[in-house]
Design a protein around this nucleic acid. Structure first.
Lengths: 114, 114
DNA sequence: CGGTATCCTCTCTGATACTG
DNA sequence: CAGTATCAGAGAGGATACCG
């Protein structure tokens, strides 16, 4: 019994490490949010996130695509590359919204106490 | 109108960058979860997370304390240092649970497709 | 028990420039 | 427009040893 609790704990540790591996880093969450917000083109995403360079955007988009959180397709209509959420990643929209709230309130919390 | 949407977007970007700054890195989420799971002593936390060295644990605990996500107190009863969640961080327990689920299901998703 | 100190490596990130 | 190439700096993370 105590042992299975310990194993559960270690499983959760690994799952959390995976999670942070996939959405970690300075830009992945902002990029996902930008796409979620309607920006589907490279240039648009880049301009929607202050401080983000095209190099980091390129790299992070590639990693997000490898993890199947977004897709990259050439649009037949516009003839531009478009980035979109996958069905898979849409499930986690609310998780992201909570992180946004968390970041906002946390900033206030830390600022007011220093 | 379009402008305020853009500003909202940039605000969210910053909030998400803050969030990932505070809970980012390989070990912060596993550490928080371990404490949440009843481990309150340095040694216990260390042993509950495979691969975590005492050096990284020490550093990350300090940072989490600075961000007011945990407290570190000497217990009068046991005479050991104890780490606890703050009222503040308890609000985000469900956020962490979702990340655990996410990590678990994501691992399955990626493994099956390769 | 609960950490620090030191050293080392490797990845992330940024700045600048260039390309199909 | 949508990136890639190159170089350089900072810091996260790991290994090992030591301390009050």
């Amino acid at each position: 019994m105590a042992k299975s609790v310990k194993i559960d704990q270690q499983e959760a540790s690994k799952a959390l490490a995976d999670t942070i591996y996939v959405i970690g880093g300075k830009w992945k969450l902002p990029i996902l949010h930008s796409i979620c917000n309607g920006n589907i083109r490279f240039k648009d995403i880049e301009e929607s996130i202050p401080g983000l360079s095209n190099r980091m955007l390129s790299r992070n988009l590639k990693e997000l695509e490898e993890n199947k959180l977004i897709t990259r397709v050439m649009s037949n209509e516009t003839l531009f590359y478009e980035y979109h959420f996958t069905e898979y990643s849409k499930e986690y929209g609310d998780l992201m919204l909570k992180m946004i709230e968390w970041g906002k309130s946390h900033r206030k919390k830390i600022i007011q106490s220093t």
